[in-house]
């Protein structure tokens, strides 16, 4: 798999909007047959990158080859081979489920005799059979998302771009969605998915974390967690606000994330015995807390990668 040509290869990909640098010298490589996760705060350049890779936006500088096609030169050669599910539902609200799918099957010029079976198969696969005559605008969030996915995979694209596909759906639909995504990848497709959910990120074969247009971390979730340049100390306390404020001012602490009643303090790795040092400091300040050293999770990786420094 790693020896084959990659599905996506970008080098120094850059996009300016006036003075704003939306994407800054991005290098990325997505192997075929994998799910590649795109993480980053809102406005970090994820959508802009996807649009450049789809040929919808011209890069200001740099190069991108998608399925071997230079997106600056021949984006049209790419379009029948990719599927792009936009962040916002972009099918027609005033068309029914079946009408939307029929429209897409004709736009992608599926052979006439294959259209109907293909649509039926999608309706079944995405559990939309009962909804076939319902207008898309009246579907629930999860149903819409399934319809969008059905439409974008109808022509069996080799590469899928999914921009926050699960942002508007309930946890059960999210789980379903990921099962379907794994099915499609098993069938040979490649997917680039943006998400804000760490549990989803953890399911990806590889991740890229973007911050302010730049790639700040990339690799498999496991590697990213193993190679986190910080020690993680879990803090349990009855007064998380005060403890967090104190820790943020405490020199060796890089950042603090709150997970319910617990805090994760990211401490510089140079500090020996971080638990003892932090515990002593908190005690000096009269703050009550139980501390223990834990292994990093993806949230820690994300916080570490996207914090200002």
């Amino acid at each position: 798999m790693s020896g084959a040509a990659p599905a996506i290869e970008a080098r120094g990909l850059t996009r300016h909007f006036g003075d704003l640098v939306a994407v800054d010298r991005l290098d990325m490589r997505v192997p075929k047959g994998s799910i590649y996760g795109f993480l980053g705060p809102n406005g970090c350049g994820k959508s802009t990158t996807i649009r450049m890779l789809c040929g919808l936006l011209l890069p200001t500088a740099g190069a991108a080859y998608v399925l071997g096609v230079d997106v600056r030169r021949d984006p049209e050669a790419l379009k029948s081979r990719i599927g792009y599910m936009t962040q916002r539902f972009s099918l027609y609200d005033d068309l029914s489920v079946a009408e939307n799918l029929r429209f897409m099957s004709e736009i992608y010029r599926l052979p006439r005799r294959r259209r109907r079976p293909a649509i039926e198969a999608q309706l079944k696969r995405f559990r939309l059979k009962d909804r076939r005559n319902q207008l898309a605008g009246s579907l629930s969030g999860g149903q819409r998302q399934r319809l969008a996915l059905a439409a974008v995979t109808l022509h069996r694209p080799e590469l899928l771009f999914l921009d926050e596909p699960t942002s508007a759906v309930d946890p059960e639909s999210r789980r379903e969605f990921w099962e379907m995504l794994f099915d499609m990848v098993d069938d040979g497709a490649t997917a680039l998915v943006t998400t804000h959910f760490m549990d989803e990120a953890e399911r990806c074969h590889a991740l890229a974390i973007l911050n302010e247009g730049s790639l700040v971390a990339s690799g498999s979730p496991k590697t990213l967690m193993a190679e986190l340049p910080a020690s993680v100390v879990e803090v349990e306390t009855g007064n998380p606000r005060a403890v967090r404020e104190f820790l943020l001012r405490f020199e060796p602490v890089i950042d603090v994330a709150q997970l319910g009643s617990r805090l994760h303090a990211l401490v510089t790795p140079e500090l020996p015995e971080p638990v003892a040092v932090l515990a002593a400091a908190l005690e000096r300040d009269g703050l009550d807390a139980t501390l223990r050293r834990v292994g990093p999770n993806l949230e820690d990786v994300f916080v570490m990668a996207t914090q200002g420094g």
């Binding site: 919808l56 736009i107 010029r109």
Partner: peptide, 13 residues
């Protein structure tokens, strides 16, 4: 306005 065009221009039409 409704975002349909972003979908349309991603197709080979």
């Amino acid at each position: 306005e409704r975002g349909n065009l972003e979908l349309i221009i991603t197709t080979p039409v």
